[in-house]
């Protein structure tokens, strides 16, 4: 039981790391998704390249590059900042792809209706297309968020004191090497189940309101 309580100490860090990275991704994914659709020569190429590079390199490698690589030159990059930066950047790429899917789900008629009403592109994007894209993106974004919650455990490799960090610590100290990890697994499951449940409820509610 003591071990369980110790592992629980990692929960705020896991959640904080996930929320911060997801927040960066939710915002940073917008320009990437729009850039990908851009008709301006070069912009789309740059966006696609960024997305592929961010997604193509494993999270743990990103964290090492940022923490051990950039971190030596930039002393303010402590483990947590490095982890948030790395996972945040990767989230930008994944969220951009989720938004792209959402954008393609919006019928062309929605853009046309806004245009025909004389609304400029910024208005059409912010009040007509954007809110609809966010809504259709919720299920995919939620499963990504749940994945991120678990994948944030890679941050332990650079010393962020999240759930696995404490579990690993306990495993080394006690004779029971596996037990602490089982407890960590339990903590993750307890956190992800309500998340999945909440998103399903949210999705159902939004669907009910604006069923097509």
């Amino acid at each position: 039981m003591d071990i369980f309580l110790i592992i629980l100490q990692g929960v705020p860090m896991t959640i904080g790391l996930t929320v911060a990275a997801l927040g960066i991704g939710a915002l940073g994914g917008i320009p990437l998704a729009l850039g990908r659709r851009s008709k301006i020569p070069g912009v789309s190429f740059i966006a696609v390249s960024l997305i592929e590079i961010l997604r193509g390199i494993p999270p743990i490698v990103w964290l090492f590059i940022i923490y051990f690589g950039l971190g030596t030159a930039l002393p303010m990059l402590d483990p947590l900042t490095s982890a948030i930066t790395g996972l945040g950047l990767i989230s930008c790429a994944y969220m951009a792809e989720i938004y792209r899917g959402g954008l393609s789900a919006i019928t062309h008629g929605q853009w046309e209706a806004g245009e025909a009403l004389g609304m400029g592109r910024p208005s059409v994007l912010t009040v007509i297309i954007g809110p609809q894209v966010f809504r259709v993106s919720i299920p995919a974004a939620a499963s990504y968020a749940i994945g991120l919650l678990k994948d944030s455990s890679v941050a332990y490799t650079i010393g962020v004191s999240e759930i696995v960090y404490f579990a690993n610590d306990q495993s080394r100290q006690s004779s029971d090497a596996l037990g602490p990890f089982f407890l960590a697994a339990l903590v993750y499951v307890i956190m992800t189940i309500p998340c999945a449940w909440a998103t399903r409820a949210l999705d159902a509610r939004l669907r009910q309101k604006v069923a097509r």
Partner: peptide, 8 residues
């Protein structure tokens, strides 16, 4: 429009 295109 034929398909109304109201904002859902």
């Amino acid at each position: 429009f034929q398909s109304f295109n109201l904002f859902p």
